[in-house]
């Protein structure tokens, strides 16, 4: 295994006039669970498609497990597990038949990993895949993928459309799987509570660029929530340093700011605040605020 499971250099992908990936430089170290988050259109799915060789880059390079992503061999593909949100499996086949087919195709098939994950679900071998619930299909898909013994496991919004119970089951089966421990996991999701539970490294993509990469706690520490009692209007938003979001609730100004410390209290007081209070934020709030900062809006807004 190389030091980095994924490396992109100035990776750019353009769909006509739209830039999906904008000179993305990204290096993801081997081991641990990495979460990739970003707003819709941030380029996450495009990145995965390029990494798996299903899209050519417009420019730049992309390597996965040390191999040029456009030159992946069948053996390379056997080392990379991929689970997408649709859990596309042959609905006309029985669970046991699909598992048997995968077992024969993947030389490093790990039956224990399969049993470990599938045990979280009430899935019978004789059931047809088409008869499984969405949650059961997701779990079955995860079991199949982990049993392949991948060095790198890419999960692209695997819990999309699942109910709360199914989500929890999916996450637990992932977290408590010994197979998942021995591989690098790239977890892409919009569900921050999931990211918070599983991710050891947080990667934020914004408009095709790398906006942030650190441990989730470090990112949370960068974002603070300030509540100020300012009579009349607050300072113009453009003048607020590091502003991610501002709201006025019950006469109090709520500021979500990035990389601001105690001197931000001075700034608020200078703007007329009678009282100032700061508090930490959840990962969900921090990421949402961060991503909402540059969200496209009509010119008139």
């Amino acid at each position: 295994m190389t030091d980095h499971v994924i490396e992109t250099r100035a990776l750019t992908k353009r769909y006509g006039a739209k830039l999906a990936l904008d000179a993305l430089d990204l290096s993801i170290a081997a081991g641990r669970i990495h979460a990739i988050v970003g707003a819709n259109g941030a380029g996450k799915s495009t990145l995965f498609r390029i990494l798996l060789g299903f899209l050519p880059p417009t420019s730049g390079s992309a390597r996965i497990l040390g191999r040029d992503s456009q030159q992946l061999t069948p053996a390379d593909r056997g080392r990379i597990g991929f689970v997408n949100e649709e859990h596309t499996l042959p609905g006309w086949m029985r669970v046991s038949a699909v598992a048997a087919m995968q077992r024969r195709q993947y030389p490093r098939w790990n039956p224990r990993a399969y049993e470990e994950v599938i045990g979280h679900y009430h899935v019978l071998p004789e059931q047809k895949v088409g008869q499984l619930s969405r949650g059961e299909r997701a779990g079955f898909n995860l079991a199949l993928t982990l049993a392949q013994g991948p060095e790198l496991l890419v999960l692209d919004e695997p819990t999309l459309g699942l109910d709360v119970v199914a989500k929890r089951a999916f996450l637990e089966s992932l977290m408590y799987s010994s197979a998942a421990e021995s591989c690098t996991v790239i977890y892409c999701s919009h569900q921050m509570e999931e990211i918070e539970r599983v991710a050891e490294n947080l990667i934020i993509l914004e408009r095709g660029r790398l906006a942030h990469m650190s441990a989730p706690e470090e990112f949370c520490a960068r974002v603070t929530h300030w509540v100020a009692d300012i009579p009349f209007a607050g300072p113009p938003p453009a003048s607020v340093p590091g502003l991610l979001q501002v709201q006025r609730i019950d006469g109090l100004h709520h500021y979500l700011v990035l990389d601001q410390h105690d001197d931000f209290a001075q700034f608020l007081r200078g703007a007329g605040a009678r009282t100032v209070q700061s508090m930490p934020v959840s990962l969900d709030r921090a990421v949402n605020g961060f991503l909402a900062k540059n969200h496209a809006m009509p010119a008139a807004a």
């Binding site: 498609r49 069948p74 593909r77 056997g78 991929f82 949100e85 596309t88």
Partner: peptide, 15 residues
């Protein structure tokens, strides 16, 4: 032909 299905079909250790 759909992108995710295609990816699922071809992303396996088979030529």
């Amino acid at each position: 032909r759909r992108p995710n299905t295609w990816l699922n079909l071809l992303h396996r250790p088979l030529a």
